[in-house]
Structures are given as structure tokens and as C-alpha cells.
């Protein structure tokens, strides 16, 4: 169990850094999705399956989709403006 936990911890630590440092917002949304999956794994190996389930829905799937939707709206707006 312990090695698995260490790997999960490492992935989350790196993931957070990558999300924060990504300057392009679309790339950041995708990275956040990956980070969300890393969090899900972390919650699983720390014996929190129900938290992992909700993190799977919220952090890994729903939130990035909403983000991409918001970005698409902004991009469409920009295009119309020229």
C-alpha cells in the first residue's frame, strides 16, 4: 500500500504544479482533468472511495468540461469581433 500511496502523492504534487504553471488556459483545463484523475487515485489509495467518486465526477470530468465551455464562449466572442 505504501509505495502506491507515495506514487499517488508524487503525481498529485507534480500535477498541481503543472496546472498552475500552464499559461494557456485550454491546456490548463486538460491538465486539470489529469490532475483530477490523480486526485481520484490518491483518494482511492487513502481509503476514501466515496470521496473519490465525487472527485471523479467533479474535478476530473464536470469542471474541465464547464471550463472548456466557458473558453469556447470567449473564443467565439473574440472571433466574431475579429
Amino acid at each position: 500500500m505504501v509505495p502506491l500511496q507515495s506514487v499517488a502523492l508524487l503525481f498529485v504534487a507534480l500535477g498541481a504544479l503543472l496546472v498552475v504553471l500552464a499559461r494557456d488556459v485550454v491546456r490548463q483545463a486538460l491538465l486539470f482533468s489529469l490532475y483530477g484523475f490523480a486526485l481520484v487515485v490518491l483518494f482511492l489509495v487513502f481509503q476514501a472511495p466515496d470521496v473519490a467518486l465525487s472527485a471523479l465526477v467533479v474535478s476530473a470530468v464536470a469542471y474541465p468540461i464547464v471550463l472548456v465551455g466557458a473558453l469556447a464562449r470567449v473564443a467565439a466572442h473574440r472571433k466574431r469581433r475579429g
Partner: peptide, 17 residues
């Protein structure tokens, strides 16, 4: 500003951990 909101979410995930 959207980058900022994602960073706020990262902050928030620290509280779960």
C-alpha cells in the same frame, strides 16, 4: 481570470487532502 479560477480550485483541492 479563468486561469485564476482554476488556481483557486487547485487551492481548494489541498483542503480535501
Amino acid at each position: 481570470l479563468i486561469h485564476t479560477t482554476v488556481c483557486v480550485s487547485v487551492c481548494q483541492s489541498s483542503t480535501y487532502i
